[in-house]
Design a protein around this nucleic acid. Structure first.
Lengths: 330, 330
DNA sequence: CAGGAGTTCTGAAACGTTTAGCGAATCGTT
DNA sequence: AACGATTCGCTAAACGTTTCAGAACTCCTG
């Protein structure tokens, strides 16, 4: 493996000079610079990022921890993060937590070992963990979820408004028995969407009794919950994330319920299949790519501006994309 | 940031001893070991992976380069890679190439700078690149694609057989004008699936004239190609990957063609939405998770066994999952 | 009891960078 | 011609580990 010394030798200069041209950290006369650059190319030299990081204490690496990359929900987000990271010379490490505390734990430990500069989290973790990371010099930003008292930066979507809009749309279609297939998980998102749902019905003067079903996130639970909900004969349902939509779709088919005739549906999250499903499903589309990009930008900003800036909350806009499952003409 | 010296001081031993307990690299008497371990815990010490990597020349890091993580096709694969990597103490860096040569180039350059131990590639790259990586000490394995003359390890699926089976299924339904919406891209997969298609029709004694349309991979191109193909009135089509399936579905709807009545459909790749689409689509399901896991195992093996083992090809099995788009009763 | 054989631990060099501080060369001024 | 300023490059120390060679001990053995 060729080192800076090899380059220096070939160019007939000292390693310090090579370093100077590499980093533009000091003036180097044009001829020397040229010789150095030529040497670098001819040896196909790639500076050792480990040595560099060891010395400078900057690794130009961030990590992104999702619960399971297989959730199509995440992919746009991941891409957004990767794009802006790369644009700024950062590399991203990807991890799956399955929301399991011990996995998260282990994961974060290896990240501090690797001296990663910051972490983007897609779900809440114990506050103590965040503080431990901070003490180790890592920055953390949440995306999609918002920690209770905003003890760290977060990038989210206007969940309550968006949910409110979705349910209002259902009500505007004349539906009165509007149910929600929501989820709990200690995630702010789930709660907020429920709030939006309640608010919309309240405003419409409708009392949704017994039509609130909260599920766990796994698809099997969701299907069980969907059966539970559909058994109560709602004439519309708001499914609070993509898994819940899938659950409703499958269960409705199973029960022979026609959508939207028997039961209208509005979902949350606009993953690819929503448009090819039958019927195509009306859903609140979160700007996933932007969410990821904004999170990465937020993290990099904080890395640049230094540790002690107060927490910043970025709220992006989620819009309803109307298709047919709500009863509209596609 | 606490270092090994701090630990050593607190435990009253030398750094070498701490290192020994950390790595189990030498015998350390139980009492000393205990003192060291206690010190480690009480200081919340995390060995600096940079320093360690600098010294040992092992970073325990691999990279996974996909063209675009947003393709749902990849997510299972990514998860497979991440799981086995982590299981063996490796961290994975994720990159998106968009198949753009300059991006690939830059990407690989940063990987060698970071002294990543190996790379998993989901698309072919110029052979010279692979060889350059090798010279820098990186191992590379391909997954999903197979380099022409197997100049590197690869993990793939039995594409021709699988395609053959898919088309045979269509023929068994009595379809005769069976078209293929394939793709070119220098990828072995596309070619192989075309071969399987041709073989099946040949065996059935059917001459598919003018029903072969090859598209580029982007969805817009695919839709254009789909229109082209459907205009020629096939009574069945084999769509060679998930993008092509989506294109056919949308275009058929656009043209008012009923699936499977007017035109049966069998796809390739079993992404989530295939089962909720209307009709649910019959498709060749690749074991994506296993593909990724096998690729990672292959890479780690090679890392362990040393550079000069001959190239190994791993072929996994893809099965047809029958739903309704082919004409079967769901 | 001398000296060899094991044990268990330590000192110090090395990994490949960056960077402070120093020194040599050049230059303009007087 | 002598002298500071200025420019440009170099020396060497540090970053936090691992690891080799060997030091200090203990324990036998003859």
């Amino acid at each position: 493996m060729v080192t800076i010394k090899d380059v220096a030798r070939l160019a007939g200069v000292s390693p310090a000079t090579v370093s100077a041209v590499l980093n533009n950290s000091a003036f180097v006369s044009p001829p020397l610079r040229q010789r150095v650059e030529r040497a670098i190319r001819s040896l196909n030299y790639h500076p050792n990022a480990l040595a560099r990081g060891l010395k400078t204490r900057r690794t130009h690496t961030i990590a992104l921890l999702v619960s399971d990359i297989r959730n199509p929900f995440y992919t746009g987000l991941v891409r957004g993060v990767e794009d802006v990271a790369r644009e700024h010379g950062y590399t991203v490490i990807l991890g799956n937590s399955d929301r399991r505390p011990e996995k998260i734990q282990r994961y974060l430990a290896t990240l501090v070992g690797r001296r990663v500069e910051g972490v983007i989290l897609t779900h809440v973790v114990p506050r103590s963990h965040v503080e431990a990371l901070r003490r180790q010099g890592l920055q953390v930003v949440f995306v999609d979820v918002r920690p209770r008292d905003l003890y760290a930066d977060a990038v989210v979507v206007n969940n309550v408004e968006a949910a409110w809009g979705a349910v209002r749309h259902l009500v505007a279609h004349g539906r009165r028995r509007v149910g929600i297939l929501g989820f709990r998980s200690g995630l702010s998102t789930g709660d907020e969407r429920l709030v939006g749902y309640r608010r919309a019905l309240e405003e419409a003067g409708v009392q949704p009794t017994g039509l609130v079903v909260l599920s766990r996130l796994a698809l099997e639970h969701a299907q069980e919950a969907a059966r539970e909900l559909l058994r109560r004969r709602p004439d519309a349902v708001f499914a609070a994330n993509n898994t819940m939509v899938l659950a409703i779709l499958r269960t409705a088919r199973e029960l022979g319920l026609r959508i939207p005739e028997d039961c209208a549906l509005v979902g949350f999250d606009d993953v690819e299949w929503m448009s090819v499903a039958e019927p195509p499903v009306t859903t609140v589309a979160q700007p996933m790519y932007e969410l990821g990009a904004a999170a990465a930008r937020c993290l990099l900003d904080r890395l640049r501006e230094g540790r002690d800036r107060e927490s910043r909350l970025t709220v992006l806009h989620a819009d309803l994309v109307v298709r047919r499952s709500c009863g509209c003409e596609g």
